[in-house]
Amino acid sequence: MSTFWIAVIGSSALAFVIKFVGASVPETFLSNPRILRINTFIPVALLTALIAVNTFADKTKLVLDHRALGIAAAVTLLIAKAPFPVVVLGAALTSALAYRYI
């Protein structure tokens, strides 16, 4: 089975297990305040790492390329309170222009 299929099926199956278990178990250790705090921080840590790696890494090399300008545009648009689709389009457009002309 290819890398892609393993990733698709494995992640989908586990995502459902988590959703279903949450809807089925009684509130136990999961409602411990420490677990709840860590749980709110996990998305912050992982999303930030994903942004950093998808912007500044090419496999295991660190690079500074057109994507950095795209992300800079996204940050600017978010500060200006632009809606999300505009943020993504703005980043893509900026990065595409940088890729073509720089």
Partner: peptide, 8 residues
């Protein structure tokens, strides 16, 4: 620009 759309 799709490679920048992912981190965005």
């Amino acid at each position: 620009g799709l490679d920048a759309a992912v981190p965005a």
